[in-house]
């Protein structure tokens, strides 16, 4: 197999992983600080994609669309948090799952009601369309490189936010002892709203970025949501570092599995059934990975005892 092809697939795996990180970072933060399982996180991703597409179509600027997606998803996050989510913190996981499942129904059909049943158009900005040349003779889409860079910058930003700022201290305090920081006079309701909005904004950003190379349509958030769950379970729920490593692990496993497994089966069986079997197995690979991690580390790679 040519080295350039393999290197390109590794880049693809990295890019997929970084995209998953943007989704899982918010999910894992919200869980770590508020102890909330949010199934509607995928809806915020979808909202990001739709707002970006609508604003980009109206203004002609992808960058404005991206900004609007961030702001819009954050605003949706604040709205949902103050109206619904904050009533769920004291509830058990069961109520959280059901309420956020209900939110998915409302968001999906609401979006369809506003934007119609057909997918929206959203394309990468002209500046980043087309490929760039990398070493080894690899031609790689500029936009995908940009996603990798943005994702890594967000990871760095989150790291600095959590370790270096006052908000970060409160977030960490909130993770370790919720009652105590309220007793210390921190406005806990406000902190929760900010964290939820931050997670929503990251999901919206991911939706907008990915919408430009995939498709902006109803239900686009659900497959990603489930992958994000796998990521944070592997990484350890509540750990942003775990989310980053888990995301890249899942991205790599999925991309390389899809690429290598059919070829592996083709070495000893007939071509068509090798492709079918290889693809079937590849689609289950990340779940097998997750089961494997949990057998040895039931709290995920970086999860504390909860």
């Amino acid at each position: 197999m040519p080295l350039a092809l393999f290197a390109e697939q590794v880049l693809n795996g990295l890019q997929f992983g970084v995209m998953l990180f943007l989704m899982s970072a918010g999910l894992t933060l919200v869980f770590g600080v508020m102890g909330l399982i949010n199934l509607a996180h995928g809806s915020l991703y979808m909202i990001g994609g739709f707002i970006c597409a609508a604003v980009a179509a109206f203004t002609g600027s992808f960058l404005l669309g991206l900004g609007a997606a961030l702001a819009g998803a954050a605003a949706a996050g604040v709205l949902v948090e103050t109206l619904v989510i904050r009533r769920l913190y004291a509830r058990d996981h069961l109520d959280q799952v059901l309420a956020t499942f209900a939110l998915i129904l409302i968001f999906s059909e609401g979006t369809r009601w506003v934007f119609g049943s057909f997918p929206l158009f959203l394309d990468v900005p002209d500046l980043l369309s087309g490929p760039v040349s990398l070493p080894l003779g690899i031609q790689y889409p500029a936009y995908r490189l940009m996603i990798i860079v943005v994702g890594l910058l967000v990871a760095l930003g989150l790291y600095l936010l959590i370790t270096r700022t006052r908000l970060g201290i409160r977030i960490r305090a909130g993770e370790s002892d919720r009652e105590m920081i309220a007793a210390l006079g921190v406005d806990i309701a406000w902190l929760y709203t900010i964290v939820f909005a931050l997670g929503a904004a990251l999901a919206g950003l991911a939706g907008a970025l990915v919408g430009a190379i995939q498709s902006v349509q109803i239900g686009m958030g659900e497959p990603v949501l489930i992958l994000a769950f796998v990521v944070i379970v592997i990484g350890g729920i509540g750990s942003v570092k775990g989310a980053l490593i888990g995301a890249i692990l899942v991205g790599m496993t999925d991309t390389l599995g899809r690429f290598l497994l059919p070829q592996f089966f083709a070495t000893f069986m007939e071509n068509t059934s090798a492709t079918t079997i290889g693809s079937s197995l590849a689609s289950m690979l990340i779940y097998i990975l997750m089961a494997g991690v949990l057998i040895f580390k039931p709290q995920g790679l970086f999860g504390g005892a909860s």
Partner: peptide
């Protein structure tokens, strides 16, 4: 080449790389 992708898959970078090669 002949590839079966996942149903509902939305990222085709890996497949496009194989097409290129």
């Amino acid at each position: 080449g002949e590839i079966y992708t996942q149903l509902g898959q939305t990222d085709y970078a890996a497949e496009i790389a194989q097409i290129r090669a």
